[in-house]
Design a protein around this nucleic acid. Structure first.
Lengths: 209, 209
DNA sequence: TAGATTGTTAATCGATTAACAATC
DNA sequence: TAGATTGTTAATCGATTAACAATC
């Protein structure tokens, strides 16, 4: 188990630090102060220093932070230095888009297979994958030591599928189904709820009129 | 301009209330107390009552809340009772998935056209849409009174496109490009950053080991 | 009426910001 | 060394939770 209790607010800022530091690296910028980073990322310098100091003293007084070192450290904190084996369930439009999404492999998530319950999808070739029958998902997970499932399925049946795959050892889920899944506490679920995002946009647009 | 200052934390819970109330409605449940809702949605009863009371006294002492009325009220608060005209830019895998996504029309967002800059995409038929040339985007926005743009494009060029469409009156953006866009303060941007979500999953999985 | 549950105020908790001594 | 900027403690701000009078 990891560090002291890091709040969710801090955790969700980490990928942003990583992205901005990557941008700086692309521009061959070698050092940056919390003040300068504040100017481009939009968090206060104080918050940036607090956030980083949850994980270690990465800076140097009078100098600031070394961009490359900090980028690499945050990468490690995010776990980008290891790999996970994943399967994707639900090979519809969204599933195919995610399967084609390359940012994935970069984060160390290797998709090993695509599954679908629809007979018309099974056997189809998508990218390097043949779509497999969801019936056989437990067997595949066990044989191939899969850690993660990406769920791009409708909410109906999602919890049942979840129960099945958790039973055979799935430890993390990237969930695009619009449902809050119940899982044992050692299983991590990260939700991407497009409808909630869209409704938020709707609210804010209404408010800004 | 809308109500008193509602915090982002509250706003992001509203779509969840709406979804759970919709589920209850489907089950023909007519009334619910903040305590019962707390049990299924996972927020405290106190928080639920605080949240709702930002917008009005929708409950009744000794009774609770009428599910149908509350669902409808939150729908109105979210702006689901009006429609917006939208275009989608970037007709790649993700763009096509979004264009096929029906939750959309339900939220009152009507996609009027798909745009792409890639000559090989232009002219393709996707669903009921022919993919149009991004070159002509300003003209289309003005002629058709478009309010919203859905951006499913790479980060390179995203800011430039943003500048162009803001100039001709776009008021909201659902942004899937992994970049924080600069916009005038009366333009709303709602980001969906898949990489940030994935990195968060990566972090949490590492931590739970 | 008695019981239930809201709406709302007050208390607590946690996150953000400010300040500054330490130190490169 | 003098100047800059961190790491960290203290102060502030905001969000969540608790409590309870109002009332259906």
């Amino acid at each position: 188990m990891g560090n002291k209790n890091i709040s969710m607010a801090v955790i969700r800022r980490l990928p942003k630090y990583h992205r901005y530091l990557g941008d700086l690296l692309d521009k061959d910028i070698q050092r940056i102060s919390s003040k300068e980073l504040s100017d481009i990322i939009g968090f206060t310098a104080s918050q940036i220093r607090q956030d980083l100091n949850n994980f270690g003293g990465f800076g140097q007084q009078g100098y600031g932070y070394n961009v490359e070192a900090l980028h690499s450290e945050i990468g490690k904190i995010l776990g980008l230095d290891r790999t996970y084996k994943a399967i994707l369930v639900g090979a519809g439009n969204l599933g195919q888009a995610i399967a084609n999404y390359s940012g994935f492999r970069k984060a160390g998530f290797e998709i090993k297979a695509l599954f679908d319950a629809n007979p018309r999808m099974i056997g189809l070739k998508i990218r390097e994958f043949e779509v497999l029958d969801s019936e056989n998902i437990e067997e595949f997970i066990q044989k191939n030591d899969i850690d993660i499932a990406i769920l791009c399925i409708p909410k109906n049946g999602a919890q049942e599928l979840m129960n099945r795959i958790v039973k055979v050892g799935i430890k993390g889920v990237w969930n695009f189904a619009p449902i809050d899944l119940e899982v044992p506490k050692d299983v991590i679920v990260e939700n991407v709820n497009l409808t909630e995002s869209l409704f938020t946009l709707s609210y804010l647009m209404k408010e800004s009129e």
